[in-house]
Design a protein around this nucleic acid. Structure first.
Lengths: 347, 347
DNA sequence: TCCCTTAACGCAAACGGATTCATATAGTTG
DNA sequence: CAACTATATGAATCCGTTTGCGTTAAGGGA
């Protein structure tokens, strides 16, 4: 059996409570006693039993991270490791542990989450997604446990703390980046998934086009996700259009990669013949050829901020739920170019 | 305050011990009593307090997952989400929770790991990497806590339980796959990182070449990692060689992507002019153009098996530490072709 | 010297269950 | 009907910490 606070107390000729206070560095204990006790702790190789502390403090000092289940999503880039790094950076500062909630199906995840909350294994939760028909968030609301959603909640904005990019704004900015380069015929390639982020980015594209007085052709809009066949087909359709777009906004680097090679197969060059801006600024965008100009959503910061919000909320729950927007930044690389620049040169 | 086992006992007119036995479905309790107690639990909305159980059972029912810190590594594909899915699948079956051990630096990770072990917050650990100069594994050995390493341990094979692919064999197989296609001039592109897997794959390549009586030209061997500039340069050097290789073994899909576009820039075609086989079978290999033949290392299974080993070890620690090898499978796509096949057709 | 304040520390009760051992009840056997 | 055996239940104890409150002793003021 490991050495307990009592063993230390006995050996140091003090009461267990004194040892406890030494551990928490209470000002009520004299420096002399502290030194004595710490010496004994050292000698005996004492280490606090966190579980016992958890029990009496009624707080597990643990936050749960709820992963999205969908495999296709999880395949996407390095979202999980980066966001976890961000979360853990803050957790370490406040001595919180991280518990992963996951499962093969949405129902598994839901059950796991409920179990953790009811079993008091977590003090709060971070939900790594936001989507319709989700059971976890409603449960958490009703349970009263602090939680923050990473992404824009489907409903109940002021009742839910959330951290997100302004995806509408980001997509608008990306689109306007192209517009400022002189592009007017801009296509959009997104995904029509159930996740909020997909919708927001499409919305942002539309806003930018409209507020700049540009037409949105239906034939310029394509939806697919991580599907090379569809992707190539969609790209070909786009390129073969009589009035071919001069630039494309693509909501994910991976999809951009598909488009990229499809375009090259058609003997067009990027960015000379067509400009591309994509999202997420993953390794892919650095490695692609040419390297892709991509919107960095700052995943680490998303994680870090959501942890900050959560821990704040745990320490003093407030009725007003806030939201934090992490700015996105356009990482300029080599996939965009002013429209018709080469032509001008010839004049 | 939440309803406890005592509240339930009082309301049901039984002793707390009886309620406890009902929870664990002990055969010593009559069905009638069980029904009665369960009904009361239901009515009162009782849920077990896992923390209390943890304390008295002297087991946290939690396993720790130690991530690798290096950002460049974590950027790599979808290793983390997939391995976590595998681990969690088994954990759920045995009612284990997952605690993530991570940090911005190796030292942070080490400290976190020690804290978790000494504080008895975990019953065992899974280490997601294997590398030299690591402090975590030695500490775990000395602490006596059950753990399993994912990857081949640097030392102490029979003292450490580990789960791994046979990376030497996998690389040999990949190389022989090309050899069987008639290739003799085979290049190797790997990384010279500190991780064991990198060394093993290079070793496997060498073995295959040697045992098939093929020459290994120094100029056919290149090392880089996720670096487009180096990658392109290395590829150009390879292609511009007087006696150009007809096939390349590349130890990571991402690197293969770099090579792929460099080759296309030089107006060569894959697989017609040069065959490529890579590793990890990530989304990239499906999305690349052409889709890459890639060695699937079965990440989910790696996670699942390591969890199985760990939980076994927790339940009954044994002196003999075993190792489990997860088979790799070559996922055939369109980046490999028999050498000179087109030529033959012309005869 | 006596009283009062205050610093320093100890006591014991939680925290919410699991476990153990003793006891009670019902049923069986000779 | 006594003796005995299963089976079911109760009460006490423990797990390792924290914490509110009480105690002790030292020190200062009058």
């Amino acid at each position: 059996m490991a050495v307990t606070i009592k063993d230390v107390a006995k050996k140091a000729n003090v009461a267990p409570s004194t040892v406890s206070r030494v551990i928490s560095d209470s000002p009520k204990i004299s420096e002399k006693t502290k030194r004595k006790v710490r010496k004994v702790m050292e000698e005996m190789g004492y280490h606090i039993n966190l579980n016992a502390r958890v029990l009496v403090q009624q707080s597990s000092k643990t936050i749960g991270i709820v992963m999205k289940n969908s495999t296709s999503e999880s395949l996407n880039s390095s979202f999980l490791p980066e966001v976890v790094q961000g979360i853990s950076a803050l957790c370490r500062k406040h001595d919180y542990s991280i518990s992963l909630i996951t499962g093969d199906s949405e129902d598994d995840i839901y059950k796991d989450a409920v179990q953790k909350v009811r079993g008091k294994r977590v003090d709060g939760m971070i939900i790594l997604y936001s989507k319709e028909d989700d059971k976890v968030v409603p449960y958490l609301m009703e349970s009263g446990i602090p939680f923050v959603v990473l992404g824009k909640p489907v409903a109940g904005f002021n009742k839910i703390t959330f951290v997100d990019n302004d995806n509408i704004h980001a997509a608008r900015e990306a689109t306007e980046y192209l517009i400022n380069l002189g592009h007017e015929k801009i296509a959009f390639i997104g995904d029509d998934s159930e996740y909020e982020v997909a919708k927001a980015r499409f919305e942002g594209f539309n806003q930018a086009m409209i507020s700049n007085g540009l037409a949105i052709h239906e034939s310029y809009i394509k939806f697919f996700r991580f599907n090379p066949e569809y992707g190539k087909k969609a790209t070909r359709e786009l390129i073969n259009l009589e009035d071919r777009p001069t630039a494309i906004v693509i909501t994910d680097d991976l999809d951009a990669l598909i488009v990229l090679s499809a375009i090259r197969d058609m003997d067009l060059r990027i960015p000379d013949d067509i400009s591309i801006i994509s999202f997420n600024n993953s390794v892919i965008s650095r490695i692609a050829s040419p390297p892709l100009t991509s919107v960095d959503i700052q995943i680490y910061e998303l994680g870090y901020e959501s942890a900050r919000c959560l821990i704040e909320e745990i320490k003093e729950p407030s009725k007003v739920k806030k939201s934090v927007i992490i700015p996105t930044v356009i990482e300029e690389r080599e996939s965009c170019k002013p429209v018709n620049q080469t032509k001008y040169k010839h004049y």
